[in-house]
Design a protein around this nucleic acid. Structure first.
Lengths: 343, 343
DNA sequence: GTGAAAGCGCTAACAC
DNA sequence: GTGTTAGCGCTTTCAC
């Protein structure tokens, strides 16, 4: 059932039917009712492509996920973010188009997306500190919003980020409170903006408590399981090994737990581990458990909010860029399920 | 730059340019070269919507992810699957459209996708044993492929599945070999096909070793962290608590590990845990570690293969449905990183 | 308040 | 081997 059929069926012109369906004021109320009823009855759905061709809008948003050939890994919370964004799109009538891109081909992909006209805007994931995509998108004039930030880029643009610095500062602080003096940081690649900020938080916490920043206790790599495993193995051989680990990713944390397990140590008794993007952390000191709930429901919420920002930008391109900084939920409490004391 | 411009620029008709670009044989080699060069130079990209309108093909595949309001959770390996599928689509020139759908509205969404014509085919995720979507899609004639199977549906259709039954059978068997006699199964919802098959494998392994199947040791629920936590807490109160846990999801496993930790027990010493979709399992008996590598790289590969199946179906609708059963990689070895002994 | 007709950018008969 | 023309399904100007 297309517009032509529907119009014929009603004895009206396509124009009138189209107007009725799209809420144009000049259609009489009676006609509008008739049209609406018929459309409903035959479950008429306007063809997206035809509509897009005519209006010049795609009614779709692109998400571009960089995948490098070497470390082909998808962030496990990615699905949650997408789910949140998807909700916002569905509510606003947008489709979501996913593109996985070799990170050396990004520029071409962005330009193509624009030229092929199959998206009205783009969400940029995993920005680096001096991310080149931002300048590129501004240049070609494709509306976009960034999940995260690029610290070294000063031009205004839409972004939404979790406060990674304060999250890691608070976590480090908490470990110090528990009595730890040798705290290791297993960070992601510090060309990535989030990783850079996390280290800043960690360092600041140490310094403000007059603790030394020991380069031997800091690692920055692609966040694989092997990385976590190897890093712990090596650090354990130090003259003064760490008593606590702050881990940037739940994937590396798997390796960390394995290494600890291999060494015959017990997490939460001999050693403390706090993991970002994970709901469980192991801490010395009795029953205390720190929960970094930057994951799941809050990531989902972030997706929803960022999508909303982009949708607004698209419908009002004149509007100044919006930015939003969310605080990570680092909750500390007894591990009875209910988390009591916020921190 | 559109076709019209490009044609004018070359002093050719749109038709000829179009033909040259799309590899039609009747174009002279000289012209083809000229056209290709000009297209390249001005980085001409045909408009997707216009092309789609003219050809009747969307050059896009839809992935529909059911999200229920209560348990709004995305499987963490989802991203890996999507990444694999994305590779196959990119290679074949397809876009990937993601739709998140409240599970009570699925029928409408499928019908709409078809009517709006913005996808050429659909990937169905997370099928139930008697999934209604399959009959629906067959009825409306939209090509599709299922990630998983629906046991109770006999009509042929395209699917790709991991052999969940044998995976859980082997895992259970392995735990029995380690000396365990009380093995708990924390399964997903058994209306889901994969969960049903996993239980079958577990039960079969117990029976073939003359062990009792104790209903008190079997749970079937939505795979949340809380579920894992509560289940372990309760089972520990049994007169004869389990000494090993077989956990269907890495998310529930987080809760399981927390409960074990809370109880003052040590994983891999006091108790064994094998988790599907996770790369780490804790086992009693020294250094042995069982790795269910049904995750990450293999899930990604599954995505790639399923996408390929769907693409073939679309390009040759007459062809009989294809099916593919993958074996899960349950590797058992010393936890030194390199996994030796396959099992 | 309604309709006719042009056009969005492309492909595909059909003609030459 | 190349061009003319119609048409995909919709919106939108313009006329009535």
């Amino acid at each position: 059932m297309n517009l032509k059929d529907l119009a014929a069926l009603l004895g009206l012109s396509q124009t009138t039917v189209s107007r009725a369906l799209n809420g144009y004021p000049e259609v009489s109320e009676a006609t509008r009712q008739r049209v609406a009823a018929a459309a409903e009855k035959h479950s008429y759905r306007p063809n997206t492509r035809a509509k897009g061709l005519a209006t010049g809008r795609a009614m779709a948003i692109g998400h571009v996920i960089p995948i490098s050939a070497q470390h082909e890994m998808v962030n496990p919370v990615f699905g949650d973010f997408i789910a949140g964004a998807g909700e916002a799109y569905a509510a606003a009538g947008y489709d979501m188009v996913l593109s996985l891109v070799q990170d050396n081909q990004e520029e071409r992909v962005y330009r193509d997306m624009f030229a092929k006209g199959n998206v009205d805007g783009i969400v940029v994931h995993a920005p680096e500190m001096r991310d080149r995509r931002i300048a590129l998108l501004l240049e070609i004039g494709l509306p976009f919003a960034v999940h995260g930030r690029a610290s070294e880029i000063t031009t205004p643009y839409n972004w939404l980020d979790v406060n990674n610095k304060s999250a890691f500062q608070r976590a480090t602080d908490f470990l110090i409170d528990l009595g730890h003096r040798r705290i290791a940081l297993l960070n992601g690649l510090e060309t990535m903006d989030f990783a850079h900020r996390r280290r800043a938080g960690y360092v600041e916490a140490l310094l403000s408590r007059d603790l030394a920043v020991d380069p031997q206790l800091m690692r920055s790599e692609e966040m694989t399981e092997t990385y976590g495993y190897q890093a712990v193995r090596q650090m354990m051989k130090l003259a003064e090994p760490p008593t606590a680990y702050l881990v940037s990713s739940m994937i590396s944390a798997i390796g960390v737990r394995r290494a600890i397990h291999d060494a015959g140590l017990v997490m939460g008794r001999d050693i403390s581990v706090i993991t970002h993007d994970d709901d469980l952390s192991y801490l010395r000191n009795g029953d205390d458990v720190a929960l970094f709930t930057a994951t799941r429901s809050s990531v989902r919420d972030a997706g929803r909010q960022l999508a909303q920002i982009l949708i607004e930008q698209i419908s009002d391109p004149q509007h100044a860029p919006r930015t939003k900084l969310l605080e990570a939920d680092l909750t500390v409490g007894r591990s009875t399920g209910a988390n009591t004391q916020g921190r």
